[in-house]
Write a protein that binds this DNA or RNA. Structure first.
Lengths: 346, 346
DNA sequence: GTGAAAGCGCTAACAT
DNA sequence: ATGTTAGCGCTTTCAC
């Protein structure tokens, strides 16, 4: 096999002694080709290692079969797991995937990103940037002008917007209720950064679980972290000080919970006897913390898959009945996993 | 702003009263346009929200300005951090990025992946799949037939192949030497899966550091893990049994080292007094383990950046003098970070 | 079942 | 400085 200039459909046609259209039909597996002709063309394609040019095809068909994905914080494990789900499902459905990773969560270059994707003629966009502060406000300004299907991940419900998310509120409530049911009354909370939508939801779940059980949530029972182990350590120290009667703790992610476990080990605070702990996320390591961590397991791979499936559906629909598509809101329930960090020693 | 059918360059030309060519010149910022004409065209573009079609441009220019990225194991933190570096640098240099995540590390669909990228007419490929077993053997068969620039990450040096990697051997040697220098003699090793190239390199580094210090590495001093916390726990238990005189331990990644720290805490083995420990990777959490973990910090974001820079260079060169490009091999040195897990209490 | 003509939206090369 | 002509490689009519 020697290298040679790329073959075009025209040259294949020439060598096979047919017209370009016939070759095109063969490539696209159309039925209306004589069996013998098809074979002859296929042989030439094989022999000369011909590969159709997807760019030309896209131009002609006015459809690229590509999705655009916008993420942020790919250096963190959550976003990247979600992305792996997105990548796998995209592949599965036969689409290609363009990736754009935002340098910051809160960004002013939204229009550029969207423009770039429009320019590249993608068939749909997956917006997987966490909702922080007002970094979704652009939606209101743009969304009506964009005819392209877009699916949003992990966000508040909005009018005319399709979203797939994990039910953070539900998960937090599950975790907190579990701590209460196991007999604790003084339940603290280490939250994520409070300008994150997810943090707020988890906070609200904690708060409402307390209220529904006749416990009054107070300010000294909460400390704010920023998801990192480091911040978890600090927040725990703060709580130990502001809420000394604390006998249970709901931590907004597993990373920060790890710090709690380790600090407790240093301070000789027995977990779960003196302090019952639940995390949130369900990272694989949580099972091997000491003690193994009770947590809320969110299936981020599934989140990504479902989002892509929805997007693909929107793309298909968009092609048939234009304006009929209704926006959807899918909320996936995370699952409580009970481990030793919240089980009383017998 | 109301939606309307997408504008083409032709319609913009019409409205501006110029030819398509002039519009094209304006879009591409060519100098040879009268200032006034340029302004007129730009106004029309603005007013009608015109966006050039990159697909058409690619077809015409025979260049897409897209790279293809192949990864595997994106659900793990290492690959995804590397990828974030790749994404950022790609963006920086003005390229788009297609993402393909392999379902398995060891795969037989290599040809399909390459074909897909060729079909999409990418300008270059970044191969970021870890080298495991013989999953790089395909290179020998294909590489000479592919005229497309490809850069490989994290792999053994090969003829005619361009590669960027972290120097795992060097890092492992650094860590092990450090343990020896701090006065230990019985240095165990928990390795990664031994069919991984990276694991072998780290193992070799450990082995040679011992040898160079007059210590004879024996089989009972090594236990094999698979990078996970779970496997780390098991491997540590095994070593405790097979190598009871062990007073220091070089663990091939931080996740497994975490298990060691936690198990030690449970077993009341004091770290670093009884056992001095070093990890490898330098994940952010390692600083907040208890005790903080001595480790080898590899800058994966930089790894990704450098790879993309090299690829971009290959693309440029390829366009001028065809066959002159020599293959490169860049090896980035990781850095030893000394923390309490390997410092003797004073 | 197959082929000819036209077009997708853009740029390169040449002409003016 | 601007316009004209001819493609880029493929698909979509619409003939035959």
């Amino acid at each position: 096999m020697e290298k040679r200039a790329k073959l075009t459909i025209y040259e294949v046609a020439d060598k096979a002694g047919v017209s370009r259209q016939t070759v095109s039909r063969v490539i696209n597996n159309r039925p209306d080709v004589a069996d013998e002709t098809r074979k002859r063309v296929l042989r030439i394609i094989e022999e000369f290692d011909y590969r159709p040019n997807a760019v030309a095809r896209s131009l002609s068909m006015k459809r690229t079969n590509n999705f655009g994905l916008v993420t942020a914080g790919l250096e963190f494990i959550g976003p990247s797991v979600t992305m792996s789900g997105i990548a796998k499902e995209t592949e599965q459905l036969g689409y290609g995937l363009y990736l754009k990773d935002l340098p910051r969560f809160n960004t002013d270059i939204i229009q550029n990103i969207i423009d770039w994707f429009l320019t590249r003629q993608v068939d749909g966009i997956i917006w997987a940037v966490p909702e922080i502060g007002n970094n979704r406000d652009w939606i209101n300004n743009f969304i009506d002008n964009i005819r392209l299907p877009i699916i949003f991940l992990t966000a508040e419900k909005r009018k005319n917007i399709s979203t797939v998310t994990i039910d953070n509120y539900y998960g937090a409530k599950q975790a907190t209720s579990h701590l209460i049911e196991s007999g604790r009354k003084n339940i603290g909370h280490i939250s994520g950064p409070m300008d994150w939508w997810e943090s707020k939801q988890r906070y609200n779940g904690w708060r409402d679980a307390l209220k529904e059980n006749g416990i009054n949530p107070k300010e000294n029972m909460v400390a704010e972290g920023n998801w990192s182990s480091k911040s978890g350590k600090k927040a725990f120290a703060q709580l130990l000080d502001s809420f000394p009667e604390m006998d249970a703790l709901f931590v907004a992610n597993d990373q920060m919970a790890l710090s709690v476990l380790q600090t407790a080990c240093e301070l000789k605070i027995n977990i779960p006897d003196q302090l019952s702990v639940s995390g949130f996320d369900g990272i694989p390591e949580s099972e091997f913390f000491s003690p193994p961590l009770t947590t809320i397991c969110q299936n981020l791979v599934e989140l990504g898959s479902v989002a892509v499936q929805q997007l693909a559906q929107m793309v298909e629909m968009n092609n048939s009945d234009k304006e009929s598509r209704e926006s959807i809101y899918i909320s996936l329930k995370p699952e409580l996993i009970i481990r030793q960090s919240s089980i009383l020693n017998l």
